[in-house]
């Protein structure tokens, strides 16, 4: 039995007079992959920013894990298990790859500053657990050999994978990938698809939401797609339905090719 993990109702956001997202309705069940596509400026990243509470919505509701999260902070929804990656990678330059992943586990350990200084055996156990967890995420994305490197020494494709590993570290309920294939070559893109499938196999209850431009990726992975254009949802449905939808072809696919 799958449950509805994330749901929005009439979500709207305007910047000045420009309507970035208007009446966006979506839902995603645990274990499923859904995609959001649309031309540049369609409001896709705005939706992610609303969901992760970077922006406050003008109207509408967001329901996550059975709770209304519209009044919650970025920190709270992140801790509830809403993880994301970024269109332009946002790794911590100056921390190595392993530490970048451990950052996401910050709230997971149970000791405070006080016990960090005084209860050493307990602290060591926690520290080891966190490290093991971070390493297992790196292994899943085939990054374990780069653990001690600085992310700035890695190629763009690898940096994106580090971001995905970081997003997975705190056992999220929803993983949001913002253009994970942007800047990747075709080979890297097909590798990325395999990784996402691996992730789905390893975390059967994880819901994944993908923003993407690459049609082969989105058509291959997602079982349901929302098509955005100028803030509005112009179509939704299965990949096959979307591919044959004349509105979509006109607004998006037609322009692209």
């Amino acid at each position: 039995m799958t449950e509805q993990i994330l749901k929005t109702h009439n979500l709207s956001k305007a910047f000045g007079g420009v309507c970035a997202v208007k009446d966006f309705n979506m839902e995603i069940n645990a274990g499923r992959i859904r995609g959001i596509i649309g031309p540049n400026g369609a409001g896709k990243t705005t939706i992610f920013n609303l969901l992760s509470r970077i922006y406050k919505e003008d109207e509408g509701t967001i329901e996550f894990a059975g709770q209304d999260v519209t009044s919650k902070s970025q920190i709270e929804v992140a801790r509830m298990g809403l993880s994301r990656t970024f269109q332009n990678t946002r790794l911590f330059v100056g921390l190595n790859v392993l530490d970048n992943v451990k950052v996401a586990l910050d709230h997971d350990g149970k000791y405070s500053l006080f016990s960090a200084l005084f209860k050493l055996p307990f602290r060591n156990k926690q520290e080891r657990m966190i490290k093991e967890k971070a390493m297992s995420c790196l292994e899943l994305l085939n990054l374990d050999e780069f653990a001690k490197l600085s992310p700035s020494n890695l190629s763009y494709g690898y940096q994106r994978r580090v971001e995905i590993a970081r997003a997975l570290a705190n056992d999220p309920k929803v993983l949001m990938l913002d253009e994970p294939a942007a800047g990747l070559n075709p080979e890297e893109t097909s590798m990325l698809m395999d990784f996402i499938k691996d992730i789905q196999a390893k975390y059967p209850n994880l819901a994944i939401l993908v923003i993407e431009h690459r049609m082969e990726l989105i058509m291959n992975l997602c079982d349901h797609i929302y098509v955005q254009d100028s803030g509005l949802t112009i179509a939704e449905g299965t990949p096959a339905e979307i591919q044959s939808n004349p509105k979509v072809l006109a607004a998006y696919l037609g322009e692209e090719e």
Partner: peptide, 12 residues
């Protein structure tokens, strides 16, 4: 390094 990204990682 980056307070904004840290918040999105759940760091208070």
């Amino acid at each position: 390094i980056n307070a904004d990204t840290s918040r999105l990682m759940g760091i208070n």
